[in-house]
Design a protein around this nucleic acid. Structure first.
Lengths: 235, 235
DNA sequence: GCTCCAATTCAACGAATGTTGAATGATGGA
DNA sequence: TCCATCATTCAACATTCGTTGAATTGGAGC
């Protein structure tokens, strides 16, 4: 009788549930959200599929844990920018929103799929959970827009909820599509596609929401610049 | 031995392959693209799953047939609007693009999913096919923007390819999301969500691309208005 | 050193999926 | 009228999926 390749029982190195979530994130990025199976995730993590059920109640609970890990840091950063006391210009703050989104979502296509709602069909409870996580994020961005209207930086007739939807949603599309589309259609290097697309988008968006669309934008920091080192330089 | 519920052999009414495509479209709309199984489509069409394999080579071939049915009419209408001789204003023509998209895609979430690329993972050949169908559509819209730049209606520094991407992509999101999101967040009636969202989006977009963003938009026809009855009324 | 618990693996289940081959009845042409 | 072809159904296949129960082992605590 051949000995099994690996005996049962605990390994010398315990499997941290976070490592399973890391593996899930990688498989989502590689195979897409719907096609990511527990077996593929287990293989990526280097463990047995059944172990995932030891650490999480179900596949859906694993999604939930992924959400719980990703969303609070985003919300925390957004709430700093959305604080009514923030003295920086509305254009600068909105660009900060873009940068925060970019920083947290660029390396995680799986969470982008979750936000986009690709998993909504057939998992209604999960959909409610995502909506609950997303709502304060939307409200933080919206409050920046409302403050901008009140300060006279933005159009008085702006529909802040729809404008929030437009800003956040287009960024998801840019992060997912432009890195594969732009290099093929233009000669653009792969790693510049997102920066180019996001700046073009923000330029268009700002003219669309600003009270004075022809006034030049303030200098905007690069996407990947250190968030703490940035101070707005008023022209 | 019990007689089978329905004997074999051809039914009195033959199954038109188009009816199978209709059923597929309905199932896509109900269950989403990925969750739509051949058995569900066959049930919707009222036939056996194996019959689908008689009319189409595979599930992917059925997608292809769906594409072949949907895209040419869209392209044909777009090319009329994109003709360089078209004398109407750039704003009016771009709104016509929005209306054409809306008219053809509003009742077919499955085709929107295909356009959005949700099926890309795991079906690379299909992805190429969609790209080939999509390219002339993108180019038609882009040529309207390029003509608008040449006529002096749009900003000279506009990136027409990215602007095309922004316009067409956001419309997909609006068609899919706003009917479920807007009624819940605002008091908006379900059937007005898309019209409200698309007008707000076009208003923002136009300010973003126009050379003179503060000039008022011309009166734009309703989304569902008869395309042939519309003549631009210059103010 | 013994015991107990936590962590891990194995094997299997039931359901769903895309697909295929054989069987069967109707239809239309010779 | 007969026969070939077309359209349809049935039953089954192999595969994959999420999930579960039992078996196994290493280490911590006494």
């Amino acid at each position: 009788m051949p000995t099994p390749s690996r005996p049962r029982g605990p390994k010398p190195i315990r499997m941290d549930p976070d490592r399973i979530l890391d593996a899930a994130q990688e498989v989502f990025a590689r195979d897409g959200l719907r096609a990511a199976s527990l077996r593929a995730i287990a293989k990526q993590a280097g463990c047995d599929p059944a172990l995932i059920y030891y650490h999480f109640d179900s596949k859906e609970a694993m999604f939930t844990a992924l959400l719980a890990r990703r969303f609070p840091p985003i919300l925390q950063e957004l709430e700093v920018v959305a604080a009514p006391e923030d003295p920086r210009s509305t254009a600068f703050r909105l660009w900060e929103v873009v940068r925060i989104y970019h920083r947290h979502l660029k390396a995680d296509p799986g969470i982008r799929s979750l936000i986009r709602g690709e998993i909504v069909h057939g998992a209604e409870g999960l959909s409610d959970l995502i909506a609950a996580r997303l709502r304060p994020i939307v409200m933080a961005i919206r409050s920046i827009l409302d403050q901008g209207i009140a300060r006279g930086d933005l159009r008085a007739d702006l529909h802040s909820l729809l404008a929030t939807f437009f800003l956040a949603r287009m960024q998801l599309e840019i992060l997912d599509l432009l890195p594969t589309v732009l290099p093929r259609l233009m000669g653009l290097p792969h790693d510049q596609a997102v920066e180019t697309g996001l700046r073009a988008w923000f330029d268009l968006y700002w003219r669309g929401v600003a009270r004075d669309p022809l006034a030049p934008l303030p200098p905007l920091p690069e996407l990947a610049a250190d968030p703490l080192a940035i101070k707005e330089t008023r022209p």
